[in-house]
Design a protein around this nucleic acid. Structure first.
Lengths: 205, 205, 205, 205
DNA sequence: AATGAATGAGCCTTCATTCAT
DNA sequence: GATGAATGAAGGCTCATTCAT
C-alpha cells in the first residue's frame, strides 16, 4: 500500500510506528467520511489506540489534518522538483510539471484526494500563513527556473497569474474527476495527452 | 447586488420574500464560515427570523444547502444553454462553454464560491442521485450538440472522458484561484485567452 | 425554604419556573460538592431537565455561577440598604452593617456559603470588572452615608482602607466558621455581641 | 525570596533540592491559576522535571496540596507559639495572636494566599481529619494558656466559640483584602491598630 | 405560518495517573 | 530514582431538530 510507503519515508523508525499508524488511519477515515464527519473516536478505533495518544502526538484534530496536509504537500513537491531538475527546455519544463502532477496523483490517490478536501480547512486554520508561504515559495521556484538563460522566452506573452492554471488546470480537473469516481481511467493513461494539451494551449508555435 | 437578482429571478413575488432572505443570508454565512461551521442559529440571526421559519421552508440544513446548490446549477446551465444556442461551429461551441463559465463566475462569485464548497456535501447527501442525473443530462446535451451535422468532427481524436477537463479545466482552475483570493484579476479579463487556450489545447490545427 | 423565596423575588412569574429550578438546584450542588466538582450533568439530574435548557438560559457553567453570585450580592445589598436607611447616628450605622450582615447570613445560609466560595471564581472570570464596580459602588455609598452632617466624625481617626475589616471582619469570621460547621450557634445569637464588639473596636469612647 | 527560606527550613539538605523546587513552583502555579486550574503538566514545566518525579515524591496532586498546606500551617503555628511564649498578661496574649498572624502573612504572602484557597480543598480531602485535629490542638493550647493563673479572667464573659473570631477576625479580613489586591498597605502597617481593636472589642474595661 | 424554548446524542478535549524502559 | 508515552474516564459544550403555543 503506497500510503504507508510515503509515511515510512516521512516518519521513519520504530519509535514513530504509532504516529504512522494514526496518520494512516486518519487519512483513510477523512477520505471515507469527510474531515468534519470523522470523529476522533473513529480514528482511535481504527488504529486501536487511545484518544490520549492521538492528542499527545498531534495536539488536536486540526493538528492531525495539518500534519497530513503538509506531508502530502512535501511529497508532491519532492517529486515535482525531481522532474523539473531533469528538464532542459521550456517545453520539457511544462511537461515535467504536468507529468509530476499526474504521476503523483496516480501513485498517491489517497493523499491527493485528501489534499483537495483539506485545503479549505487549512486555509481557515491557524496554519494558513504557512500554506501561503509554501505557495509563494513554489511560485518563486518556478519563476527562477524560467529565468534561467534559454528558458521561458516562449511564455512571456502569457500573464504570470494565469500561467499555473494554463499549465496544470486541465490535469487537475481530470484528476478531481477520477478521484471522485466520475471517470474511470487513471490520469496516468492520459499523461502525454494532458502534457501536450497544456503545451499547445500556451500557444508558442 | 447580483446575488439577490438571481434569487428574485428564481423565487419571484412578495410571498417568497422571507424565503429569498433566508437563502441570501445562508449563502453569505456558508461562504464566510464554511458550510459545516455555519449553524442554523447564525442564519436565523442574520435574517432576523426564527429557526422554526427556516425549518418550515427548507426542511433541514441539508435542504437549505441543496436549494442553494441547485439554484446555482440551474442558473449556470441557463447561461450556458443560451451561449451554446448561438454557436455554429465547433470552435464557437468551445468558446461558448468557456465564455459562459467565466462570465457566470464573474457575475455570481458568491454562488460560484458556494458551488465549489457544496459539491462534496451534496455528493454525500440524499440528493446525490439528482446531481449525478444532472451531470449526465449536461453531458448528453453536449454530445447531442456535437452530433449535429458539420460539428465536432475535429474532436473525435480526443477521448470523451477527457473532453470536459480539456475544455473547462483551465478556466475552472483560474476561477478557483480568483474566488479564494490567490489572484486578483477577474477571470473575465482573460475570457478570450482562456477560450483560445482551450481551443488550441484540443489540437485541431 | 428560604432559598426559593429569594429566587421567586428575583425571577418572578411562571415563565421563569425552570430558570428558578435550575438556579436552586445548582446552588445546592455547588454547596454540596464545590463549584469545580459539580458537573452540569449533576445539576441536570437534580432539576430533571436537559443540558440544553441549562445552556439556553445561562450560556455556560460560569454564567450559572455568575447569576447565582450576583443574585446573592443584590439581595444582601438590599437588606443592608434597608437597615442603613433607618440608622441615625454613627453607632446605629455600624450596628446596621453588622446586623444586616449577620441577619442575611442567618436567613440565607446557602447563598452565603456559596458567596464565599464563588468570589474567587468570579474574580478570575469575565465578570471580574462587574464585581470590582459593585464593590466600589458599595464603598462610595457607605462614604456618602458617613459624609452626612453629624455622622462619622468619631471614625475619622481610623484609616479608610481598614474600616470595612474593622466593622465586618469579626462577624464575617464567625459566619464562615458557622457555615463550615466549625461552630454550632447561629451568628444571629451573637448579633448584639458582634455589633458591640465592632463598635468598641473602633475606639470612640 | 521568603518562600524558599521557609522551604529550606522545612526540607533542608541537597537531597531535598528537587522536592523544594517542586513545592516552590507548585505554590506559584496554585496561586496564579487556582488549585483546580493548575495541572501537573504546568508544575512539571515550571520546575523542569518529569511527571514521574512529582508522583514519586508526593503521591498525587492532593498530596502536593497537603504538603504545602501543612507546611504553611506548621510555620504559622511555630511563629504563634514563639510570640505567645513571651506574653505575660491576657492583653499581651491577644496582642501576640494578632501580631503573629499579621507578621506571618506579611512575611509569607504566597503561603498565606495559598492557605486561604486550599483550606476548602483539604477540608474535603482525605486529610480533613488531620486538619480538624490540628484545629482542636490549637484551640486546646490556647485554652491552656488562658487557664494559667492570673490570665484570661477578663475574657470569661465572652462565649468560647466566639473568641477566635473576635480576636483574629478583623486581622484576617484585612489580610484577605491585601492578598487579593483590594487594599494596598501591608497589614504590618496596621499591626498595632488591629491588636488594639481586637483587645478593645473584647470589652474588658 | 411563525416562534423559540426544550431536547439529548454526541463531539472534542483535558488531565490525573500508571508503568515499561 | 527518573522519564514521558500511553491510558481512558469524564466533562463542558454544541447544535440540528422538534413541538407546544
Amino acid at each position: 500500500m503506497q500510503t504507508s510507503d510515503l509515511l515510512e519515508r516521512c516518519y521513519p523508525g520504530r519509535r514513530a510506528e504509532l504516529k504512522r499508524s494514526i496518520l494512516s488511519q486518519a487519512l483513510a477515515c477523512f477520505n471515507a467520511q469527510g474531515i468534519e464527519a470523522t470523529t476522533i473516536e473513529m480514528i482511535r478505533a481504527a488504529c486501536q489506540t487511545s484518544v490520549g495518544a492521538i492528542y499527545h502526538h498531534f495536539g488536536n484534530k486540526e493538528g492531525l489534518v495539518a500534519a497530513l496536509f503538509f506531508t502530502a504537500l512535501d511529497d508532491q513537491a519532492t517529486l515535482r522538483e525531481g522532474y523539473l531538475a531533469q528538464a532542459k527546455t521550456t517545453q520539457e519544463g511544462v511537461y515535467a510539471l504536468v507529468h509530476s502532477y499526474v504521476d503523483w496523483v496516480d501513485s498517491q490517490p489517497d493523499w491527493a484526494r485528501f489534499q483537495f478536501h483539506a485545503r479549505f480547512a487549512v486555509t481557515k486554520g491557524p496554519l494558513k500563513d504557512e500554506l501561503v508561504a509554501r505557495n509563494k515559495a513554489r511560485n518563486r521556484q518556478l519563476m527562477e527556473w524560467l529565468a534561467e538563460p534559454g528558458r521561458g522566452a516562449e511564455l512571456l506573452r502569457v500573464p504570470a497569474e494565469l500561467m499555473p492554471s494554463l499549465i496544470i488546470g486541465q490535469a487537475e480537473s481530470y484528476c478531481r474527476a477520477w478521484l471522485s469516481g466520475r471517470v474511470l481511467s487513471s490520469p496516468k493513461r492520459y499523461r502525454e495527452v494532458l502534457a501536450e494539451a497544456a503545451w499547445r494551449s500556451l500557444g508558442s508555435d
